[in-house]
Simulated scan of single mutants.
Amino acid sequence: MTNSEKYHFDDFTFDNYKRLIELAKEKGFQFILHKDKFEVERKDVIWRHDVEFEPELSLKMAQIESEAGVKATYFFQLHSEYYNIFDSFYKEIFKKIKSFGHHVGLHFDSHYWNIKEEAQLDEYIKLDKQYLECNFGVEIDTFSFHNTTPFTQSCLSYQYGGLINVYSSFFKEHYNYCSDSLGYWRYDRLEDVLKDKNVRHLQVLTHDGNWRDDVLSPRKRLINTMYHHADRLIKEQIEGLHAQGMLCPDDNED
């Protein structure tokens, strides 16, 4: 068996993403939010995105969901190594995703604050929450941990810093879980989970850098995301210089 077959590389295209959304609807899942009241009899899915590498790809996924008539939650970082949420380019993407009717949350980085004890969470989550709300004019009610560790996975309270914790014991006890972390299905394949008649409540986690137009390996998807990001920044810089009448000559240019 090849890695492509073993890890279902062909699952991670935008065309298949559309199909999975439609499959969830076909199987009777209602798309809800973490803050919605839990109802035992309702068949539902909390569809969530941790925005890790390139929000531009998240926007494409948000549009697919909007066209399918469903809502998801997008968790943005304040301290990302890959994108600056306060850059005007990304602020516009944030606003567009919100305009599709999607929910937004905080993708909280405990590593940035060097948090070692659960008692520290309230202070720093509140700080990031206030900063995000102030700069974007939104209300945040939910957070997810960035790059979970045994420590953050042990923080099981329903709320920290006034925000709902998507990794709380409540969601672990009441919802099945399916994630595409690292570019493949970490536990069970999403298509199989959606078709499983025993699954009534589901939390799905996806990441922007794991989805593409074409079938690629997880490594190639990640590399392409980095190159796309770099190409945009380079183009912006060169065009900005030219717009000011300044040159940025290359070896092969006169």
Rank of each mutant, 00 (worst) to 15 (best):
D128A: 07
V70N: 00
D231H: 05
Q244N: 14
Q159L: 06
F9Q: 09
K43Y: 10
D141Y: 01
E54D: 12
D36A: 03
R212E: 15
D15L: 15
E67S: 10
Y187W: 14
S80C: 06
S88L: 14
V104M: 04
K172H: 15
A62S: 07
M246W: 11
A62R: 01
L233W: 10
C155T: 06
L222W: 15
Y187V: 14
A230S: 13
K43H: 05
D141A: 05
G28I: 02
K25A: 01
M246Q: 14
G162S: 04
N3Y: 14
K96A: 03
V193D: 08
D87A: 09
K126S: 11
R19C: 11
T13E: 09
A72Y: 03
M1R: 14
Y160P: 00
H174V: 08
E81M: 11
K220D: 15
T152V: 04
R42T: 12
L121D: 00
S154R: 06
L247S: 13
T73H: 00
S144I: 01
D208P: 00
K95R: 12
L156P: 00
G162I: 02
S144R: 05
E26C: 07
H102W: 03
Q77R: 08
D10P: 10
K37D: 13
Q159N: 09
G209Y: 08
F38W: 06
H242E: 14
E81G: 08
Q153D: 12
K18C: 11
N198Q: 13
E65H: 02
S110I: 09
I32C: 02
L121P: 01
N84K: 07
